[in-house]
Design a protein around this nucleic acid. Structure first.
Lengths: 341, 341
DNA sequence: ATGAAAGCGCTAACAA
DNA sequence: TTGTTAGCGCTTTCAT
């Protein structure tokens, strides 16, 4: 195993100075060098199997061509498609992403983000934003390029890519009302996240739009976006003796928790209660019953987010912008006409 | 935003030479420096908020403290837990992983691995091994530290972490035989992978162990580990008029494909045909019917694999070893007593 | 159009 | 125990 060739080796082999070889090999500066010389250098590089050392380049240019990707938990099926969308955009641009999991723990999040800065990432794509998020505020204030995906923050000045949650809720609610449901409950996600808040607000808006009463008893906030929290939420609702024929769940995992809670009580979906989820997670169509849900374009969210960050890195002064992506309702077996009476 | 402090700033602030500061700050070399001086340096570093620049360190030491992780597709629910296991071991050791997806395309795999070497990874954890894999042979021959997870290669000298697939098949088959099944088919995964081959071999061994005939018609090789290929495989079997009461699927996705194919034909699981999967993928318990499957310790596979690689990086001369992890059968609704006649 | 020279921030001989 | 020196591989002024 011999030492990999360096720029110097290429220069020697082509009979030029390393600086000239550098210029010839870099597309950005190639025009500064004689075409013939450039070709000679390029041939020499190819012959030697030369690959520039990105670490040396980074040290000189203080650009790492890497970014950090902050997600709650890779094993949540929501995130892998986002990650792929991001990588498929970053890769061709010469960038790569370091992925960290926060497990929704602010301390862990802070430690992980610090380890990313330590790695000299040029920017961050963050999927863990809370509406109020002082730590992210600080990073933004420090000038670190930041893009939010999936969730936004209250302050609107940090670029974000989100789905049109309000429209999704409107679709879901219209579907339920169309099926004859009049008493619809909402098992909301955590209200410190934009997704949780936006969907809950849109739920109330939909009630108003359809002329249905907004009863506080029909709204429960789940402690987390998990099956466990969803089951607990529905049990709370049922224990309180609340009467409803349909549930709008904050997301698919909460909907799955509803399946569990219903099974515990010997109730059936959709016969007794219809359920709509959010996300269209993988295999939602294979569940029992297949889950009606709002499909979110996760891959596109990732891809758009990466694009926003690249734009920002290439032109730091460019105006920031946020992107909202459309979504669709996928009707399956978990929703059915309401009991009449 | 002022320039981040460098080692030089710390040295100046502590009134020592940068080399001394370097020694004081690095735990490995701290014993070379006077305790008081070291403390003064450490205090100065803390006061300035100094963080060593890992890129400069890498350039000097030619160690990147990064490794590459090669997987087929992050959106396959098999892999996120492996990734987390890997990261949870690498992180505390000061290493991080670059993740690449190959989509099971050898060309893409090669390109991605080259981009990892370009990034100066110190080693590779590979989840895409085929039994014969010349490209990986080449990397191993070139001295790149390599660890295989999930799948092995024919040559046994590359360290690997796998589940005890043969034992898993034996468990699954014993379960089916116990339930009264006598005509059991195997929808095997691709035979160029160790998992596909090992499970298929163990299937035939189990037939022999239980005194059942080994009929070639009862074995089908699926083209890939996917739902689509699983559905195609079962259709092929049914179209051939093969009579069986149970199916051992190569993995859970192939089992899901069987669900689809059965539904197409108006047959039901487990009433008409029982199915056992492999992996215990997330939400396998929520499927219709809940899937009986062999649970593989994915997180542990990742964690062990990372440990093997770290051992290798710390002591390149250390003997290689491979790890085989035990697994368990999870019995659910997709298996039931066979029809009698 | 090319070469010379300097330096990104750090570490590791070697010298004192 | 500390300082001196050199250099990892590359890019980028500046000079020619």
């Amino acid at each position: 195993m011999t030492r990999p060739p360096t720029l110097r080796d290429v220069a020697d082999s082509a009979g030029v100075h390393p600086a000239t070889a550098s210029r010839a090999l870099n597309p950005e500066t190639r025009r500064l060098v004689n075409t013939e010389t450039a070709e000679r250098v390029i041939r020499a590089a190819a012959a030697l199997g030369y690959r520039p050392n990105p670490i040396a380049r980074s040290l000189k240019t203080s650009r790492s061509t890497s970014v950090g990707l902050v997600i709650p938990d890779l094993t949540n099926p929501l995130f892998p498609p986002i990650v792929r969308g991001i990588e498929d955009v970053l890769g061709p641009a010469g960038y790569n992403a370091w992925i960290v999991n926060t497990d929704n723990d602010p301390d862990r999040e802070q430690a992980q983000i610090e380890s990313l800065r330590f790695r000299q990432v040029e920017g961050l794509i963050v999927a863990t934003a809370r509406l109020e998020h002082p730590f992210l505020d600080g990073l933004a204030a420090a000038g670190l390029p930041l893009v939010l995906v999936n969730r936004r923050m209250s302050r609107g000045d940090i670029p974000s890519v989100t789905a049109d949650d309000a429209a999704g809720v409107a679709l879901a609610m219209a579907h339920l009302v169309e099926l004859g449901h009049r008493r619809i409950a909402h098992l909301a996600g955590p209200q410190h996240t934009s997704t949780g808040r936006t969907r809950a607000n849109a739920f109330r808006q939909a009630l108003a739009d359809h002329g249905l009463p907004d009863e506080p008893a029909l709204r429960v906030e789940c402690a987390s976006w998990t099956e466990l929290a969803g089951a607990a939420g529905l049990r709370e609702l049922l224990d309180a003796g609340v009467d409803c024929t349909a549930i709008l769940a904050g997301n698919d995992l909460i909907a799955l928790g509803c399946y569990d809670a219903l099974a515990d009580r010997g109730a059936r979906c959709p016969d007794d209660i219809s359920i709509v989820g959010f996300n269209d997670m993988p295999y939602a169509d294979k569940l029992n019953p297949p889950l009606t849900t709002v499909r979110i374009p996760h891959y596109a969210i990732g891809a758009e987010g990466a694009q926003l960050l690249l734009d920002r890195l290439r032109d730091p002064l460019r105006h920031t912008r946020s992107v909202v992506l459309p979504l669709t309702l996928v009707v399956r077996g978990s929703t059915a006409p309401a009991r009449r009476g």
